[in-house]
Nucleic acid binder design. Sequence first.
DNA 1: TATAGCACTATACTAAAGTATATCAGTATC
DNA 2: GATACTGATATACTTTAGTATAGTGCTATA
Lengths: 121, 121
Amino acid sequence: MNKKKSDTSIYTPTECKKFILPVRDVIDIIGGKWRLPIIIALSFKIHRFKELERQIEGITPRMLSKELKELEINGLISRAVFNTMPVSVEYSLTDYGKSLDKVIATMRDWGLTHRNKIRNE
Amino acid sequence: MNKKKSDTSIYTPTECKKFILPVRDVIDIIGGKWRLPIIIALSFKIHRFKELERQIEGITPRMLSKELKELEINGLISRAVFNTMPVSVEYSLTDYGKSLDKVIATMRDWGLTHRNKIRNE
DNA sequence: TATAGCACTATACTAAAGTATATCAGTATC
DNA sequence: GATACTGATATACTTTAGTATAGTGCTATA
């Protein structure tokens, strides 16, 4: 009776870490300098490698290639190769990638409020 | 008539960047290795510096101090000094900081789904 | 034959994020 | 007088993220 389990059930370093893990996953997946620009570009339309390179200004082919691979591993985008001459490769958001929309929208809402708050201080 | 504005209105590098900015803000604010643990810990109760240091295992006082400052600058937490002996300093989430709950919950939901998906592959 | 476009990759580098370790001033306890 | 507590800060270091630049194999066009 001297200790209430419910008060601190989540509030131990271990439980706290467990609570955070899925949130951290999202940050790991869409974090970094280039992932969001890529996801947003692909949410508008399917893109070829060079199109993305031109669309996302400042990105190097090395980073684009690297990030596309990561996003593909995480199942957010898919890669389709066509044997045209020269070969063309199309990147598109998977349904799973599209499901991030809700998350991005929620973040964006808060971020817009934050921007207004900062501006009015 | 040969170009439809609505098709590409958001879809230029400049407009795309504008769209992303508030989302990036959120990542910048809660991203990094230690911000979420700090925010979550403070969402359960007010903490003193040493309490946070003990609660968040692995953090060094340098990082804790650095991140607390950043979070305070962004208005998410507040710092209260009491002239006890020795001095005690209490950190708490502001209402504004608490407003991140919704964002964190949404991210967590998606992250949990992602974890289940990965596990079942 | 030279040049250009596509989808990358390789190598070397710089910058940012995070870690390790020691130390500070003040007080209270052993 | 030595040690420990509080809330930090300083310096030096390593690790991760991102950049710069050049080059690959293929083919079509000039």
